[in-house]
C-alpha cells in the first residue's frame, strides 16, 4: 500500500478512496503564482488534484525568492507559469497543468472561472480580488480568497449562496490607502501559512467535508503569533450576491463596475 502516492489521504476517514478519486477528477484555477500561489500549487498538486490551471502574467524576479518557494534561483527571468509547471511536474509527472500566461481581467475572467471547479485567489491586486469574487458569485463557483502583507494575512471561502467578499468589504480600498508588498515588505512564512490554509479550504470544498471558512474570515498575525477567526453575515444589500444586486452580468461588467472594482451608480 505504501507504493501508493496518496495512501495517507486514502486512509483518512475524511478523504477515503472515493474522496481521493474526487480530487483526481477535480480542477482548480490558481490565479497568481506568488507568495500565496506557491504553497497553494505545491499542496494541491501533492494532494492529487487532477488538473490545475496556473494563471499569472509575470516573470520570476530575484526579490520573489524570499517567499515564492515554487521557484528556483535559475528561474529568474522565466515566466512564472512555465517555471511553476516544471517544478510541479517533478513532484508528480502525472499532473494535468494548464500554464496560462494571462492577465486576468473583465474580458477573460468568465472563461477562466467557468472552466474550473474551484478558483483560488492568490493575487496581490484588490481589483482582481473583487473581479474574481464577482465572477465566482455570478457563475456560482466556489472561491478561496487570500491576502497577505508584512507578517500576516487573511483567508475566507466564498460559496454559492454564502456571504461574499463584497458582503464584508463592499468595495476595494482606495489605492492611496493601501501599501503594496514592495513598500510594506513581507515575510515568506506569512504567505506560507495563508496559502496552506487556502489549500486546506480548497480540498475541503472539493471533498465536501468539514466546515469551510464560509461566512468566516481567518486573520493571521505571525509577528504576534495570533490567529483569529471572525464571522460575517450575508449583506442583504450586497451589490453582487443579494436580491438587490447591481452587478448582474459579466459581459456588461465594465459598464457596471469601474476599473478599480467600484460599483457604478
Amino acid at each position: 500500500m505504501t507504493a501508493d502516492r496518496h495512501h495517507r489521504q486514502r486512509i483518512l476517514a475524511e478523504v477515503g478512496e472515493a474522496g481521493q478519486q474526487r480530487l483526481e477528477r477535480a480542477s482548480v484555477a490558481i490565479v497568481g503564482l506568488g507568495g500565496l500561489g506557491s504553497p497553494v500549487a505545491l499542496y494541491l498538486a501533492a494532494a492529487g488534484v487532477g488538473r490545475l490551471g496556473l494563471i499569472d502574467d509575470q516573470q520570476v524576479e530575484l526579490s520573489n525568492l524570499n517567499r515564492q518557494i515554487l521557484f528556483e534561483d535559475c528561474d529568474v527571468g522565466r515566466p512564472k507559469v512555465e517555471a511553476a509547471a516544471g517544478r510541479l511536474l517533478i513532484l508528480d509527472s502525472g499532473l494535468r497543468l494548464d500554464a496560462r500566461k494571462e492577465t486576468v481581467g473583465a474580458s477573460n475572467v468568465e472563461a477562466i472561472v467557468a472552466e474550473y471547479d474551484l478558483v483560488v485567489d492568490a493575487t496581490d491586486s484588490f481589483e482582481t480580488k473583487f473581479l474574481l469574487n464577482d465572477a465566482a458569485v455570478l457563475l456560482r463557483k466556489p472561491l478561496v480568497h487570500g491576502a497577505v502583507l508584512r507578517w500576516g494575512g487573511q483567508a475566507t471561502t466564498v460559496l454559492p449562496d454564502g456571504p461574499c467578499l463584497r458582503c464584508l468589504f463592499r468595495e476595494p480600498p482606495d489605492p492611496a490607502d493601501i501599501e503594496t508588498c514592495e513598500e510594506a515588505g513581507i515575510i515568506g512564512a506569512a504567505s506560507g501559512v495563508v496559502g496552506s490554509v487556502q489549500a486546506e479550504e480548497a480540498l475541503k470544498v472539493i471533498l465536501n467535508v468539514g466546515t469551510p471558512l464560509s461566512g468566516r474570515i481567518f486573520h493571521h498575525d505571525g509577528l504576534r503569533g495570533e490567529t483569529r477567526i471572525t464571522t460575517f453575515p450575508r449583506d442583504s444589500d450586497c451589490p453582487v450576491c443579494s436580491p438587490r444586486a447591481r452587478i448582474t452580468d459579466l459581459s456588461r461588467y465594465d459598464e457596471q463596475v469601474s476599473p478599480r472594482g467600484h460599483v457604478r451608480s
Binding site: I11, P39, A47, I187
Partner: peptide
Amino acid sequence: VGVLAPLPGIIGTIQAA
C-alpha cells in the same frame, strides 16, 4: 495514520516564522 496534504504546511511554516 492518514493526513491531509496542507496541514503540515501550516504547522511547518509557523515553525519557520
